[in-house]
Amino acid sequence: QEPLTASMLAAAPPQEQKQMLGERLYPLIHAMHASLAGKITGMLLEIDNSELLLMLESPESLHSKIEEAVAVLQAHQVTESSLKS
């Protein structure tokens, strides 16, 4: 699969840009956190496209962002379940 570039993204409508980024991010996230992949991808897609492109080129920064998302998600789930009980 050819790498996603800023010019490829710029040629697409905004909503499609996120979908294109998501399609690239999802398999990488799925490899780390299969059960949370959809949710984590959705969270990361709220980040600026330019930053997401950098992350796709830098596995290290992507991994740290994924771990951050997992931590945020877990903290959120703990809060939610404590509210319910």
Partner: peptide, 23 residues
């Protein structure tokens, strides 16, 4: 530091599945 990530973000649905899963 506080994360800017939003736990209530909408879930992403890939257009094509990664693995062939028979449901």
């Amino acid at each position: 530091k506080k994360s800017t990530l939003n736990p209530n973000a909408k879930e992403f649905n890939p257009s094509k599945p990664l693995l062939s899963v028979n449901k």
